[in-house]
Every structure is written in C-alpha cells, then in structure tokens.
Simulated assay, not measured.
Amino acid sequence: MLVISRKNEESICFPGTGIEVRILRPGPSKVRVGIKAPPEIPVLRGELELNGGVGDAEVAGIKSVMIVDDNWNEMKLLAGYLRLKKLEVQTAESGAVAMEQLLSGATPDVVLLDMMMPEYDGAWTINQLRSSPVTEKLKVFAVSGCDPDELNVPIGPSGVDGWYPKPLNPEKLANDLQRQAFLVTT
C-alpha cells in the first residue's frame, strides 16, 4: 500500500485510468474524500470489500430498487453497490420526480427514500405514495439522519415500512431487504 500525505484540496491521480482522489475536508476523526472515476469502474467503501464484499449473491426476491435522494454522490454510491448485488436500480433526485416515474409505469420492488430533501421531501413523498392507488402498497424504506419522530412520519401502513439511519451501511441494508422486503406490514 502506498501511503502519501495530502493537504486540503490536493489530489492524487492515477494516470491512464481516469481516477482522481481529492482530499475535500480533513478532520480530527474523519477525512472527506472525493473520488472521480469512469462509470465502468465501481467505487466501493473498503469495509464492504473486506466483509465479503459484493460477491455474486443477489438480494433474494428483490429485483429492482428506486433510490430517491437529492445527494447525487450518495445516490451514485448506493446505486453502484446495489447494481453489484444484481439489482436493477432506478434513481430520482426528488419526491416529485419519483412520483412522476412511478405514476408513469416504473415498478420497483422497493423504494429507498431520503427523508431530508430540500424540495418534495420524504414526508411529502410518502403522503403522495400512500394516497395513490397505484403506489399505496409499494414497499418504502426511509433513509435519514433524523429520527422518525422528528419528521412526524409513521412506520407502518400509512407511512414507511422501515427506517435506516445515515450514515447508511449498504451491506446491512441489502441483507435486511433480503429478509424483510416482502413481509406484510400490519
């Protein structure tokens, strides 16, 4: 392993690969790093590779997921991981875009919904989903840095089917989807 020191906004490039790693915000316990890579090169967090990684195991019973998130980087990383798990992934950058796609015929098995978006947030989106006969029974899992109580979004038939705190552990999410995505919510 090459160990190199970098200051804020300095980068490391891998010639001929199209990969660049940039230090965005150093901190006392974490460093925020930006990674630019060609779309055909998957970028994963190290702990996913170390813990058995993505392998060939697909999430049983789940074939497609819609990720609704206004943070393009988070959405791209999660979408890439789930695609490596052999899932079809659709994305939407807001609740309004997700509703448009869903009402136009998109039929994911599960929706992963960011609850904190600047426009058409998760609470608005879940209300729209549950009030439409086309989407009212769709499995929806919230992804948020907040508690459900803070956002006044119920867990159950009139709200979301489950809640995943950020920072999201994608391996746990994939395992949980395998176990519970099609359980009937009572």
Rank of each mutant, 00 (worst) to 15 (best):
L44G: 06
L44C: 10
R45N: 10
E47N: 12
E47R: 14
L48T: 10
L48P: 02
E49T: 00
E49A: 08
E49D: 09
L50F: 13
L50S: 11
G52Y: 14
G52W: 15
G52R: 13
G53H: 13
G53R: 12
V54N: 05
G55Y: 09
G55T: 15
G55R: 05
D56Y: 09
A57I: 15
A57P: 07
E58P: 13
E58D: 10
E58C: 15
V59K: 00
A60F: 12
I62V: 15
K63N: 15
V65M: 05
V65N: 03
V65H: 04
M66R: 05
M66Y: 05
I67R: 00
I67A: 00
I67K: 00
V68E: 04
V68D: 05
V68Y: 08
D69S: 06
D69C: 04
N71G: 11
W72V: 15
M75D: 05
K76W: 14
L77W: 04
L77T: 03
L77Q: 08
L78G: 04
L78K: 03
A79D: 03
A79R: 05
Y81C: 00
Y81P: 05
Y81H: 11
L82N: 03
R83G: 01
R83S: 03
K86D: 03
L87C: 10
L87P: 11
E88R: 03
E88V: 01
Q90T: 12
E93S: 14
E93R: 13
E93N: 11
S94C: 09
S94V: 07
A96S: 08
A96H: 07
V97M: 11
A98N: 01
A98T: 03
A98K: 02
M99R: 09
E100D: 12
Q101M: 11
Q101L: 11
L102D: 05
S104H: 08
G105F: 09
G105R: 00
T107H: 06
P108F: 06
P108T: 01
D109K: 10
D109F: 09
V110N: 00
V111C: 12
V111P: 10
L112K: 10
L112G: 06
L113W: 09
L113G: 10
L113H: 06
D114K: 08
M116W: 08
P118A: 12
P118V: 01
P118I: 00
P118N: 13
E119F: 15
D121Y: 13
D121C: 14
G122V: 08
A123I: 14
T125V: 04
T125F: 03
T125N: 02
T125S: 07
I126N: 00
I126P: 03
N127M: 07
Q128A: 11
Q128L: 04
R130A: 02
R130P: 09
S131A: 09
S132Q: 13
S132G: 07
S132T: 13
S132N: 15
P133H: 10
V134Y: 14
V134F: 14
T135Q: 04
E136F: 12
K137P: 00
K137C: 00
L138V: 13
K139R: 14
K139Y: 12
K139L: 12
K139D: 15
V140K: 01
V140P: 01
F141W: 15
A142Y: 11
A142P: 13
A142D: 10
